[in-house]
């Protein structure tokens, strides 16, 4: 009886403490949400009002037409989706080669893939700037997609390679005898079986380019400017800081990552902890 009560208290304590922790963690975000729905006059009041006296969604409407935000939004969408698609196609092909063929240089190339995964971005920032400039791709969508694809490929290839290896070869051998070529094989047999991994990898590539700041900051000026860099230009001026719109835009911008992370929580946690936690 005593043990049972003890266990019960322990559980309640865990829920209480866990809830408090989570609340403290999201409190800053709640503050930002309330900032985005209050009129500017209330925002710049001292001392600040904890609960807004009046709620307005003006910021969510105005942010689309008062500044260049709409353009940055489209840039972000175009660049991130293109990156996800291209990185996915290239990585699927490369991972298939690593998983199913034995060829000269396989180990070396795989090592290159693994090593580039750990490379810090700032260590190639300067030469990459020259590469992109020499190709005439500074401040272009193509240039940014190329860069992000390069950053996404190592992790995508590595993860897919592991996944493909776990798929039994028998199926493919039967199809090969039936006269399928390798591409058909990949498309009809491997892809359907590897769907979860492909979703995970596509999400990774999308988010990588969606959230990226440093390279967008250095390599774009106006044409290919994405949201992370554009927030300042759109809402923080020399004279007026439109905090309501800044945070409304930030929240809209944060919705895709939050939805993807929380929605794909199970895969994400699996991927993150794979290898780090031994079974």
């Amino acid at each position: 009886m005593r043990v049972k009560t003890q266990a019960k208290i322990r559980t309640w304590l865990a829920y209480g403490l866990g809830g408090t922790f989570v609340f403290a963690l999201v409190l800053p975000l709640i503050w930002v949400v309330t900032t985005s729905v209050r009129p500017l006059s209330e925002m710049t009041q001292t001392p600040p009002l904890i609960f807004p006296r009046s709620i307005t969604f003006d910021a969510y409407v105005d942010l689309w037409d008062t500044g260049p935000f709409a353009k940055y939004f489209i840039n972000s969408v175009v660049i991130s989706f293109s990156t996800a698609l291209i990185a996915l196609i290239f990585s699927i092909c490369a991972a298939y080669a690593f998983a199913r063929f034995r060829f000269k240089g396989a180990t070396l190339l795989l090592m290159v893939v693994v090593m580039s995964q750990m490379l810090p971005g700032s260590s190639i920032l300067i030469p990459l700037f020259q590469v992109i400039r020499a190709m005439g791709l500074l401040d272009t969508h193509v240039g940014m997609v190329l860069i992000y694809t390069g950053f996404a490929i190592p992790f995508c290839t590595w993860l897919l390679n592991g996944y493909f290896r776990a798929i039994p070869v028998d199926l493919e051998q039967a199809a090969l005898i039936d006269g399928c070529n390798r591409l058909e094989l990949l498309y009809m047999i491997i892809l359907p079986l590897a769907a979860p991994a492909i979703v995970a990898v596509g999400t990774f590539a999308f988010l990588l380019s969606w959230n990226e700041f440093l390279f967008a900051f250095v390599f774009t000026k106006s044409q290919a400017l994405t949201i992370p860099v554009g927030l300042r230009a759109a809402f923080l001026g020399q004279y007026v800081n439109k905090y309501d719109q800044l945070f409304a835009a930030s929240l809209i911008f944060s919705l895709p990552p939050i939805a993807l992370f929380v929605g794909l929580q199970r895969y994400f946690v699996q991927g993150l902890t794979a290898g780090a936690v031994k079974e």
């Binding site: 190339l109 030469p127 490929i153 290839t157």
Partner: peptide
Amino acid sequence: MTPYYFLLPAMLVLAVIILYPVVSN
């Protein structure tokens, strides 16, 4: 020959975006 065709696009991008910059740096 096939594996190299499969690898080519990814490795080309890696060469331009990662490998060359590392050496160049």
